[in-house]
Amino acid sequence: MDLRQLKTLIAVADTRSFAASAEIVNLTPSAVSQQIQALEAELGVVLFDRTRRPPLLNAKGEEVVRAARQVVQIMTEARQTVSGGSTGGVLKIGSIRTLSRRLVPAAFAAVRHVHPDLSFHLTVGMSEAILSDVAAGRLDAAVVAEHVELPAGLSWHLLLAEPLLLIAPKEWESEPPETLLTRLPFIRYETKVPLARQIDVELARLGIEPREVAVVNTMPSVIGCVLAGLGASVVPKSAIPEEASYAIITRPFANGPIIRRIGLVQRQVSSRSVVLSEVRRALADQAHSMGLDVPAAAQL
């Protein structure tokens, strides 16, 4: 068994195709097939169900792929550490959408002042997906909302705790905040992310059943609906663009501060630990400049 075979197996697993994986690992499809067969012979197990077209990983194959990802990641990071490339090259960072517009790019710019040879690859997605990418080694770290279940081998570093705010069209400025959700139609944020669940849970806790006028799955669209005068909604502070302040009002959501905790997730053992420390510091500094400090209560 060698690293090339493991990388080939991972490529086949990711593309679900022997032919497509051949382009990734710079081999012919027949060479890919030969490497997989050699790996199966060495392990003494069949990794693919070849009665299916295309062949699919079986249960043993899934286990070997998980182990292969760990081995390849360890070897890659060991080589980077030895070669002194841990603060250069490309840093692959994931981010949830609401923080990818201002906070993360500003942090990148700050880090580059310290490490001018560093470049960045930003992947924007849902917390669950980019967490999986960090665990699999496809990303070095990710800015995500707090997660109850953190995959093994990852660590969480709290960056900020931002309030959830009730927003409404400017003409409702004189209305008491407690009546906005009952008098105005509601724009509901519906997607499979912790933020959407957090808003729904808090509305239920308050006993509020808003009259939905729209259901959308991106935060910019939620804010766009409010800007258009369609109704009110609840959003995290970081999602509100500065240029929107002229047309909307913001009020505290519920009776006390309802917060969303944001952190940086990275592998517990990483050759990029030095530069990731700089990234965490830059993210925290930018959060401070945006008024998104971590209150003491949020650190518990």
Score class of each variant (00 low, 15 high):
Ala107Arg: 12
His121Asp: 00
Leu27His: 01
Thr51Gln: 12
Ser33Trp: 01
Leu99Lys: 09
Met126Trp: 04
Ala135Ile: 03
Gln37Glu: 09
Ser95Leu: 14
Ala135Gln: 13
Val114Lys: 06
Gly125Tyr: 08
Gln80Ser: 07
Ser33Tyr: 03
Arg97Asp: 13
Val104Cys: 06
Leu103Gln: 00
His121Pro: 00
Gly125Arg: 02
Ile74Gly: 06
Gly94Asn: 08
Val111Arg: 11
Gly84Ile: 11
Gln73Asp: 05
Leu57Tyr: 07
Ser132His: 13
Arg102Ile: 03
Val71Met: 05
Val90Arg: 11
Ser33Asp: 03
Arg79Ser: 14
Glu62Ile: 15
Ala67Gly: 07
Gln34Cys: 04
Arg102Trp: 04
Arg112Pro: 03
Ser30Ile: 15
Leu122Cys: 10
Phe108Cys: 12
Val65Thr: 02
Leu99Asp: 00
Glu62Asn: 11
Ala38Ile: 07
Ile74Ser: 13
Asp133Glu: 08
Leu39Met: 12
Ser30Thr: 13
Asp133Ser: 11
Arg69Val: 05
Val32Leu: 07
Gln37Trp: 14
Thr87Met: 12
Phe108Glu: 03
Gln34Gly: 03
His121Thr: 04
Ile74Ala: 14
Ala106Met: 09
Arg52Ile: 07
Ser30Asn: 15
Ser30Trp: 11
Phe48Lys: 07
Val82Thr: 11
Gly94Arg: 15
Ser100Cys: 13
Pro29Leu: 06
Ile74Glu: 14
Leu39Pro: 01
Pro54Gln: 02
Leu39Val: 01
Arg52Pro: 02
Thr76Pro: 00
Val104Thr: 07
Phe108Lys: 09
Arg112Gly: 11
Ala109Gln: 14
Arg52Tyr: 02
Gly84Cys: 12
Asp117Gln: 10
His113Cys: 05
Ala68Ile: 00
Glu128Asn: 09
